[in-house]
Amino acid sequence: MTAKDAAVAAGRDLGLDVTEGKVLYELFSVVVHLVPSPVVARVPTVLPHTTTPADLARRQQQELDVAQWLHEQGTPVIPPSPLVPREPVQWDGFSMTFWPFTEEDEDSVPDYVRNSELTADLHKALQAYPGKLDFLSSAEPRFVREGLELLESRPDLVDPADVARAKREWLVLEPLVSDETEFLKAFPGIDLQPVHGDSPPANIFAGVNGPLFSDFELITRGPVEWDLGGLGLELQAAYDRGAIKNGLRTLDKNVLRFVNAVGAIRVIAYLSCADQLPAMVEFMQPFINQWRDTEPYQA
């Protein structure tokens, strides 16, 4: 059974009127419109080998909870669908969540400068989130370490010299993403809070009634820089403008250097999942090329 078929079957089992599943997006997840119901299912399909079904369900529940909470506070988000219970659903080996079908502004052109500035609005709203979140869980340190080890035997996917450098850097970085105390020792004075976890400037949906924050599946607790990694000076400056407007601190250059290094090595580690999605090898190559041109990370 495919992810689309599983979404259709699960939707029908929940009592939705579903005549067909229309795939709206497919990369690391498959997003399926359950036609004619005003509901879409999001089904993760490319998962690290360290992610258990229980891990995935817990992460999905956190996403549903934070999206619902933000919606209730008046933050512009895509909330969970009100037509089904607010919980992940397992079907034939897939775990999925359900969201309202939201009409997209087809004439909209992605504006990452605006989106970066809007991210400060999201951070302001998230400061009051009452749910418990783990420190930098979206860094997935165990997966990165084991993924790099797997890649040592896959020179067809990653140059062995790149893997060797990544492993050296990860020895320095892993303690900082695994232990909040170690992070705070390295970056004294940096406050931690709930953050989106997966580059919100790239995950703002262009709705017909305005931009909507979406895709909170990597929601975590950490420095705000975690959400701005790899975005460059122009977008960082845009975020800083939004931060000042919201009474938040501006981005710290040392923490940005840290999150950029972690992000680059996570990209490399994810190539250990290439058998699940072969297209990611070509997709991620520009990020690896950019990383090669940077200085190795040192504490």
Rank of each mutant, 00 (worst) to 15 (best):
A3V: 00
K4V: 13
D5V: 08
A6D: 09
A6P: 13
A6L: 12
A6M: 11
A9D: 04
A10I: 07
R12F: 08
G15C: 08
L16F: 02
T19D: 15
E20N: 14
K22E: 09
L24G: 08
Y25F: 12
L27V: 10
S29Q: 02
R42K: 12
V43A: 04
L47D: 07
P48Q: 05
T51K: 15
T52N: 07
P53Q: 06
A54G: 13
D55T: 05
R59K: 11
Q62N: 14
A67T: 05
Q68M: 13
H71M: 07
G74N: 01
G74A: 01
G74V: 04
T75I: 14
T75P: 13
V77K: 07
P79L: 04
P79C: 02
P85K: 03
R86K: 08
E87M: 11
Q90E: 13
Q90I: 06
F98C: 09
P100S: 03
T102E: 12
D105T: 00
D105W: 01
V109Y: 06
P110M: 00
D111I: 00
D111F: 00
V113D: 04
V113M: 04
N115L: 06
H123N: 02
Y129W: 14
P130S: 07
G131D: 04
L133H: 04
S138Y: 06
R142Y: 15
P160N: 04
V163E: 13
V163H: 12
A166N: 09
R168F: 12
E169T: 01
W170Y: 06
L171D: 14
L171G: 15
V172K: 09
V172M: 08
L173R: 02
E180T: 03
E182T: 09
L184Y: 01
F187S: 03
I190C: 12
I190H: 10
P194I: 10
P200Q: 00
A202F: 15
I204Q: 03
G207C: 05
V208Y: 06
P211D: 00
F213K: 03
F213A: 09
T220E: 15
T220I: 13
R221E: 12
P223S: 03
D227P: 14
L228H: 05
L228T: 03
G229P: 14
L231N: 02
G232A: 01
E234M: 02
E234H: 01
A238S: 07
D240R: 11
D240C: 12
R241Q: 08
G247D: 00
R249Q: 09
D252G: 02
K253E: 12
K253Q: 11
N254T: 08
V259Y: 14
A261K: 02
V262H: 11
A269M: 04
A269D: 04
A269V: 01
L271F: 07
L271V: 02
S272F: 10
A274V: 06
L277H: 02
P278R: 00
M280L: 14
E282F: 08
M284W: 15
P286R: 04
F287Q: 06
D293T: 02
Y297N: 05
